[in-house]
Design a protein around this nucleic acid. Structure first.
Lengths: 343, 343
DNA sequence: TACTTAAATTGAACCGGTTCAATTGGATGC
DNA sequence: GCATCCAATTGAACCGGTTCAATTTAAGTA
């Protein structure tokens, strides 16, 4: 049997209240008493039981993150390496405050909301991190209604509240289009994210803005909706290159689709960067090691994870967030060899 | 205030014991009573509080996984995409039993063991999943001593116990070497995992076995210790190609190093698959979309995640595991275009 | 109808912490 | 010497579930 706080109290000849005060760093305890209690804790190898503490403090010291898969074309979207970087960022910050990150995976839909409801009402977690936001996301509506602490990586078009951090995808895409236009590209294809995603419309606006700015016309035949997978990048690119008037550049909304696109171009005996240029989004660690290395939009995902964590903790503690209407970061265009002057 | 079990009891005009029985599906409750309790639960929107339940059942319905980073050459090893697939597998199985997977990140070393000790003694989790096993891993010794339920993805050379699942890396590498030798390669370089890892020695044995089997000699100049990063794959490959008598094929112990290797080969104006062949390990989803697509060893990582989860649950419940001395899976050699006949 | 047995229900005790009103003890002031 | 004050300590009540011995209810039997 593990020692309890009462065992420690008995051993140190003090009351449980005093032990509790020592554990929680109360200044009320005399130094000599504290020493004695510490010694007892040490010799007994005592650690407070998480569940008991949670029960009385109403805190679990755990935050949650749920991978809500969307099925497209009958296939599960696999999780992006990007998400792993996000987890990296969150956990590397969480370790300092002894807070754990709990993970669930569930398909979007009926059962998804059940899971959220269960987590919230059973108070298994103190707060939630949401990502891959959908338009009219039912999760956001529910959590807002319940006044449950949560932060979002992403945002809606018009977003109230200060609980989100996002990368300005539109501005990034605008910069990418400008880069391509300056290289001399006039026919630029657009490999879109799935339409349910809330970022899809925002990013599209950036593309339109960029094209208008550079006086380029948008050809509806050069738009293809992907699902973030390499496969869909490949399919979309073949579709583009089958057009009577194919593009000389393809903008892809993530790196994985860009890898698929490059593969498709090469499979046709064409050269990436001269015959067809490719731009990605995310700058996952592989992007600089692909062949050719990928021009892409870098987002400081590790730092975003850290920031999301710190923001969430503030919300949980009901401290002011010193954010007004979220936080928007600029992605940086990293130019590598997948883009070049068209033939 | 959230409703408690006593509120439900009052509302349904039964005792708390009966409500508890209904919640836990006891067969003792009369059907009519059950209906009444269910109705009360529904109208009050009641969900049992996780902490209270944990306190009395001594179960948290949470399992843990800790990313223990090893610092090599002053750099953090970033987590492999492979780990994400593992998480995918675990969580997709865990959702069915309402069990969460909690994540921590901590550098290997002093503080690492503190974290493990805290998690075990504070009973924040019911069990642990270990991976990236090191030789003489202190975590294994501690958990064994504490009789804390845990499973391992990986194994030691001589491993007692039935709580591990591993891929037979040695057999895989043997097959890879055979494949290369059959293509006509005689000088095969070996890009090793970091020496601390417990899989390093096992995999090396596979390489030696394969080379001996094919009557090839091992050149010490064609061995390089990497750290699983693309960067180290690049560095190792440049080192190999700088040798007076360079290799015609390179075996890399993971796909990320293989990508780095291919990049280095191409940076020298050489062609992967004809000038130098490259083999990877893992078959991450990008492997089939690289340029050229990567010949690699596929491990069913998603299924391994599921199996690890189910094994751990059995250990937690002290059920028989019907495994005798762990479970060893054969990786499958997937031949793509990064390997070919040497010039 | 009375008696036995099985099924259903009850509720106090328990899990192991935190909290806070009440109490103790020692120092200070007059 | 006694009252006052404050720092330190105490321990019962509470958080919200589960458990199980004891009790009530219902069904079956003679």
């Amino acid at each position: 049997m593990m020692p309890t706080i009462r065992d420690v109290a008995r051993h140190a000849r003090v009351s449980v209240g005093t032990v509790s005060n020592v554990l929680n760093g109360s200044s009320l305890v005399k130094d000599e008493t504290r020493q004695r209690v510490m010694a007892a804790i040490e010799t007994l190898g005592y650690h407070p039981t998480a569940a008991a503490r949670s029960l009385s403090t109403q805190r679990t010291n755990t935050i949650g993150m749920i991978r809500s898969e969307i099925r497209l074309q009958g296939n599960l979207i696999e999780t992006d390496p990007m998400v792993l970087d996000l987890i990296d960022g969150i956990t590397s910050e969480a370790i300092n405050s002894s807070i754990g990150l709990t993970f669930w995976a569930i398909p979007a839909g009926q059962r998804e909301m059940e899971l959220y409801r269960r987590l919230v009402t059973s108070r298994q977690i103190d707060g939630l991190i949401l990502f891959a936001l959908r338009e009219k996301d039912p999760r956001v509506a529910y959590l807002q209604e319940q006044a449950f602490p949560f932060v979002i990586f992403g945002r809606f078009e018009s977003m109230e509240g200060d609980n989100w951090i996002d990368v300005d995808g539109a501005a990034g895409i605008e910069a990418a289009v400008r880069h391509l236009a300056e290289l001399g590209h006039r026919r630029i294809a657009y490999l879109s994210p799935p339409h349910e995603q809330s970022l899809t419309r925002l990013r599209w606006q950036g593309f339109v803005r960029g094209m208008e700015e550079m006086n380029l016309s948008i050809d509806p035949a050069l738009i293809y909706e992907g699902d973030f997978s390499e496969k869909s990048g490949q399919l979309g690119t073949h579709y583009f290159l089958d057009q009577p008037n194919p593009p000389t550049a393809i903008f892809c909304n993530n790196d994985r689709m860009a890898f698929g696109a490059m593969r498709a171009i090469q499979a046709r005996g064409l050269t990436v960067g001269s015959d067809v240029s490719v731009v990605g989004f995310d700058d996952i660690s592989l992007a600089r090691y692909s062949n050719p290395p990928l021009t892409t939009l870098n987002q400081p995902i590790h730092d975003i994870g850290k920031a999301l964590f710190n923001l969430l903790i503030k919300l949980i503690n009901r401290e002011p967030t010193d954010l007004l209407g979220g936080k928007l970061l600029k992605p940086e265009l990293v130019i590598r060899q997948s883009t070049g002057r068209p033939r």
